[in-house]
Simulated assay, not measured.
Amino acid sequence: MSEFLTTFTSDLKDNLAGFIGVSVTEVKTGMSFASLSVNPNFDPELASAYNLEVVKAKLSAIKALGLASKLDDILITLSDQLHIIDLSENGDYFVYLAVDSSKVNLGMARATLKKYSKDIASKM
């Protein structure tokens, strides 16, 4: 698992323009299994801890509304950054990605994240 996550985080950093940071977190426990940041002032594990509450709230809302829909991702748009929270296929993990919005296209960021995160559930 450790080698997979190291490769996963490095691939995102190397292949995504504007990469700031990423972490992989378990929804049930809030435990972060991997994180990487190119900015020493940005802690993706801390951000994931807060964003776990966002994920849980959205999952609760979906359940309360009786929706049959599955949560794929959550987009948070800041003035200079995009934060994407992508749930694994089985919903057990999420990938939290932060990118510089002036250097990346949202569609490319989502596509690249999906490309590299598709195996999270099966590798964990």
Rank of each mutant, 00 (worst) to 15 (best):
S37L: 08
K58W: 02
L67D: 06
E3A: 12
A49I: 08
V104T: 15
K103P: 02
L113D: 05
L65C: 08
A64L: 12
D14V: 03
S117H: 11
F94A: 02
L65Y: 03
E53V: 09
Q81V: 10
K114I: 00
F4A: 12
L82Q: 04
S48N: 09
F42S: 09
V104F: 01
V55D: 02
E3I: 03
S88L: 05
T9E: 03
E53K: 13
T7H: 12
V95I: 06
I20E: 10
L5D: 04
L113N: 05
G91W: 00
D14H: 11
D100N: 14
N39W: 00
L36W: 05
K118R: 14
S101T: 02
N15W: 08
N51K: 11
S48V: 12
K56P: 04
S60E: 15
A111I: 05
E26L: 10
A121P: 07
L82I: 10
A98T: 15
G66M: 08
A64C: 01
T6P: 00
E89P: 00
A49P: 00
L16A: 05
T7L: 12
G91Y: 02
S101Q: 07
S79T: 08
I85P: 02
K58M: 06
H83Y: 11
L5A: 08
Y116V: 01
L46M: 13
L36C: 09
S10F: 04
L106V: 09
K56G: 04
S69V: 14
L46S: 14
F42Y: 15
I20V: 13
P44R: 10
K114L: 08
H83I: 15
K115Y: 11
M1T: 03
M124S: 12
V27N: 02
A121K: 02
V27W: 03
I84N: 02
D92Y: 01
G18F: 04
K115G: 00
E3R: 07
Y116M: 07
V104C: 01
F8S: 06
K63A: 08
V99T: 15
Q81M: 12
A34H: 06
S48K: 06
A49L: 09
F19M: 06
V22A: 15
M108P: 00
F4H: 13
F4Q: 07
Y96S: 12
A98R: 10
R110V: 15
L71R: 09
I74K: 01
D14L: 13
I84A: 01
I120K: 02
I84P: 01
N105G: 01
K114M: 05
